Amino acid sequence: MNYHHTTTGIFRSRPNRFLAQVEIGGKTELCHVKNTGRLGELLLPGTPAVLDRHEPGKRKTNYSLIAVRKEGQWVNIDSQAPNAAAAEWLSGSPLGFPVTLLRREQTFGDSRFDFYLEGEGGQKAFLEVKGVTLEVNGIARFPDAPTERGVKHIRHLIEAREAGYLAYLLFVIQMKGVTAWEPNERTHPEFARAVREAAGAGVIVLARDCRVWEQGMEIDAPVACRMGSGGPAM
């Protein structure tokens, strides 16, 4: 997926979770942050940043902050990018069957999953996407803040699997250079338990890293999933 009006700057501060002060061309601009997560290890004063420029008058700010530099590489922090990248990735039928139908925002029970798929072999599947920006010592972790909504999605993926659907949980790691993904047990133990329960119930847990550049991002290589607490590696 690509952005069409990008520019670079220097991150200065984050007054609140929705806004950042970024120096662009020697002038400090107030920018929208397209991610409400903590991002404490990424949004450091002096960090190079990528901004997506808005059409004049369309939004309250002129720019959105979409990526920052960490240890020599770009990390995409746009919370909408993983779904866009996943839609492109799924069009290539990477799940082992040719996809004949792909719908976004499909309801099942009390949840709305990111994707519903059908395959030419009669497969019917739901897939939920989670974007990952937290990396510690080469290990990607999710979530970076407690997410009751994420737990709810996982519980309903289990229900979908029990109802006969294929069910997938895809962690899109918005960077390169990680060796594994694991649930962030310390930040949200309930989420970690739910992921392990889902894997045991037949939900397929996947992680993929991404190629990230100033104008875009695409899903790239598989990353090992480590369940933790004795759970299976996938």
Rank of each mutant, 00 (worst) to 15 (best):
S79V: 10
N184E: 10
F126V: 09
V172A: 15
H4D: 14
K70H: 14
R141N: 00
P56W: 10
G177C: 09
G37M: 03
R17E: 13
G25P: 08
I219C: 04
T179S: 14
M175I: 03
P222S: 09
V172I: 10
R12G: 00
G122F: 12
R208Q: 08
G138M: 08
V99W: 05
L19K: 10
D220P: 00
Y63D: 05
G164D: 01
Y3H: 14
R14P: 05
Y168L: 05
A167I: 01
V22N: 07
V99K: 02
P82F: 03
D52V: 08
K176A: 15
A125N: 09
R208M: 01
V136I: 12
A199P: 00
V33K: 09
G121R: 15
N62M: 06
R208P: 01
A67T: 02
N35Y: 06
L95N: 05
K60C: 04
V178F: 04
L170Y: 04
G150L: 04
W181G: 02
M1R: 05
T100C: 06
Y165L: 05
A85E: 12
F108P: 06
F97G: 09
S13E: 15
E128V: 03
L42W: 07
C210K: 03
E159L: 12
A160T: 08
R14N: 07
W213P: 02
K130V: 05
V33C: 08
E23A: 09
P146T: 00
P146V: 04
G26S: 11
G119N: 11
G121K: 11
N62I: 00
S79F: 04
R208W: 02
V129R: 00
M1I: 09
V75M: 06
L19D: 07
A140C: 06
T7S: 07
E118Q: 15
H5A: 15
Y63L: 04
I204K: 15
M1F: 10
C225P: 00
N62Q: 14
G230A: 04
L157F: 06
G40M: 07
W89P: 01
E118L: 10
G72V: 13
P143L: 01
N16P: 01
A67D: 00
L170M: 13
E185Q: 09
N16E: 13
V212C: 02
G230F: 05
G119A: 12
K176W: 03
T6Y: 02
N35E: 03
A201E: 15
I139F: 07
H4L: 13
L39Q: 11
Y63W: 06
A145T: 14
T107Q: 15
R161N: 09
D78V: 11
L102R: 14
Q73P: 00
N16G: 06
L157D: 01
E55K: 15
F18T: 12
F97M: 10
H54P: 01
L65I: 01
Y168N: 02
A145R: 15
R141P: 00
G72Q: 04
I204F: 03
F191P: 06
V136G: 00
A49V: 00
E218D: 11
E148F: 07
L117P: 05
A145I: 12
N2S: 08
E135T: 13
A221R: 13
E159V: 02
G122I: 14
E55D: 11
F108E: 11
G200R: 05
L101S: 11
D110I: 13
L51H: 08
D78F: 05
T187E: 15
V68W: 03
V75K: 07
G230R: 11
G9A: 08
E185D: 02
L43T: 06
G150A: 14
